[in-house]
Simulated assay, not measured.
Amino acid sequence: MSDSTTFPSTPQSESITTRNRVFYDQLWSGAKLIRPQSFHTWKMFSGMAREAGRRLEIGPGLRPRLPLEGTDFFDLSSEAVRQLRRAGGSARTGSASDPLPYEDATFGLVCALDIVEHVEDDHAVLSEIARVAAPGARLIISAPLHADRWIPFDDLVGHCRRYDPDVFFAMLESNGFTIEESAGYGMQPKSSRLLDFGMRFLAWRPREGMWWYNNIFMPIGLMFQSELKFAPGTEHTRNLDEVLLICRKTG
C-alpha cells in the first residue's frame, strides 16, 4: 500500500481515527445531506425503523439510511453532525472506537454501514453495539469482504481490513447476533480505470476531487443503484465484494 493511495493531508503516522476524521470532515465540508429517501434501502429500512422504537445509526456521515426524525446518529465527523442536527436529526460526535454514549439495551434497531472495517478494534465495536441493542433488536450491518481484493479505494476511504466471510459472520454470532438475511451491497466503482483516474486526481487536486465526488459521481451513483436482493442466510455471499446483513440479537 503506497503513500500515493492515501489522502494527502493525512500522514500515515497519525492514528486511523485521526486520518478518518480529517478525510471525512474534508469530504463532508463540501457536501450536502442526502436524505435517506434517496437510497434503495429506504423502503426496507424505514419499515424496520417504524417497528423498532428507539433506533441508532453509527457513522452515517451525510448519507443516513434511517429516518432523520426519531433516530439517534453518532458520527466521527463534526461537519456531518452539524448538518444532521440542522436537518432535524439528533446527533452526537464521537468515534466508534470508543464506548458508545448510550445505556445498555437502549435500541430496537442499530444500523452500522461501512463502519467496522474502519476501526482498529472491531471486536470492541461489535461488543458495544451488542451492549446498546435491546433483546430481540435488529442490526443492519455491512462490510467489505476478501483481503485479496484490497485495492487503492480501500486505502483512500480509511479501511483497516477486508473480512474473510466466515470470520465476519462468526464475530457477529459471538456477540449474540443471528444473521437472518443478506445481500450484495456497496457503491465501490466497478471500473478499475475510472478508479485509478479518481485516485490520481484526488492526490493531485484534492479539493476539486472532493467536489466531483459530491456533485457529479455521487448523484450519478444514486441514479444507477441496483435493487437490493436479499436471501435467507449467507450461503450466496461468498463471492461478493461487500455484504449487507440483517441480524437479530438473540444471544
Rank of each mutant, 00 (worst) to 15 (best):
A133N: 10
I129A: 05
E117F: 00
P144Q: 02
P135W: 08
Y102F: 15
R161E: 05
D166P: 01
Y102N: 01
Y163G: 11
M187R: 12
E103S: 15
R162S: 05
A137D: 08
P99K: 14
P165T: 03
G176D: 08
R161N: 03
A130K: 08
S192V: 10
G108A: 08
P189Y: 04
R200Y: 00
D114W: 02
M199C: 12
R200L: 07
V116Y: 06
A137H: 09
V119C: 05
I129P: 02
D114N: 13
I140F: 12
F153K: 02
F153H: 12
V125Q: 05
A130V: 01
M171I: 00
L194V: 11
D196H: 10
P144Y: 01
Q188R: 14
I151C: 10
G184P: 01
S174A: 15
I141H: 01
I141W: 02
S182A: 07
D154K: 02
N175W: 04
R131Q: 06
G198E: 03
D196C: 02
V157H: 00
Y102I: 00
V110N: 00
A183N: 08
H118T: 15
L113I: 12
D148Y: 04
I129H: 10
S174V: 06
F168Y: 07
R193H: 07
A134I: 03
P189E: 04
P101A: 03
A124T: 06
H118C: 15
D155H: 07
S127F: 03
R131F: 10
A134F: 04
H146Y: 09
E180K: 15
A124S: 14
A137C: 09
T178C: 06
G198Q: 08
L126Q: 11
R138N: 12
D166L: 14
G136W: 14
R131A: 05
P99T: 10
H159W: 12
L113P: 03
I151R: 14
I115Y: 01
L109C: 09
E181T: 10
D196R: 15
R149C: 04
V125T: 15
V119F: 05
G136Q: 11
P144F: 06
G186K: 05
R200H: 02
I140P: 09
W204D: 01
P99W: 10
A183I: 00
A143G: 10
